[in-house]
Amino acid sequence: MPEVVAECARCASPIERGDLRCAVCGDSAPHESERRTATEVEVLRCDGCGASVRYDPAIQAPRCGFCDSTLHVEMVTDPTEESELYFEFTVDPAQAIKAVRGWLGRRGFFYPSDLRDRARMRSVKPIYWAGWMFDADALVSYAADTNHDTWRSSWAPCAGQVELHFDDVVAPGTRGLRPDETAVLVSSYRGPASAELRLPTEDTLVERFEVQRSAAREIVRRSLRSMASRRIADGHLPGTAHRSLHTECVVRSLVTHRVSFPAYILAYRYRGELYRVVVSGQDASCMTGAAPLSWGKIAAVVAGVLALIALVFVIVAAM
């Protein structure tokens, strides 16, 4: 678990162990430097053999030319991310299967009528998918074209600046689930999240973060910018349509948690084809997935519409 060692004096974002600078605003992490009162001449010597030590570009560290030992210098560490919080599974596998059957039965007219009855569940895999949750305050500047107060062109420019607060925003870090799947699931996790990992079954897959801290921060920054743009588009632009929306964020107090989110991946087979559905591990009604279309019904509707058009044409021609 990353250890927060200080708070940035400039933007109030946490600084974690291994950070030399604030990841948000670039200020230096607090550091106690030695106060010297007189000139000191130092020949750096190897602890092992006493020979003088030189910085070697090949290994990017100070190295003794005689015994090859190296000196440690403090540098940015970029460890692979690890989960620190886990949302608990509150839906069991049986409830997930039942919910998927109900979902298959409610697919609508253009899906096979026997989809629910003939779908054969092949596997129910509980997984913890990885993501980041962050809180932040941001001063967001924006400029865009909207269809409000237009003259001859369909577009008119507008601009503004607004303070936004982001609370528990999820930035997915999973490779197992697609972005459209995680977008559906994120609203279903209501916590509380705990530091203890409790697996519902032994075969639960706990997905690891496969990115380093620096890459994770870039994902969080992108997610925050994208969320800011959505919030501006939804609540701060006049008119009913917009284009060319540009936003710029001055972020403060960006607190990020590495979180594992529970979900079930269900695979079912229908007429020889395999389909996948993902169900939230905290709300069985929240799911997304694929289902086969009934091409017979679609063809019948198209034929019916064409027949209707032909009939209207004949009637009009006869009049």
């Binding site: 030695e34 009162t37 130092e42 910085y55």
Partner: peptide, 26 residues
């Protein structure tokens, strides 16, 4: 004797750099 020396002056005269980007190319 080819010994490399680093001279550290009083902090009041000349502060140390905060950061260093190390050589990678020889």
């Amino acid at each position: 004797c080819a010994s490399p020396a680093v001279v550290e002056k009083p902090s009041s005269e000349n502060p140390d750099p905060t950061f260093v980007v190390g050589f990678v190319l020889d």
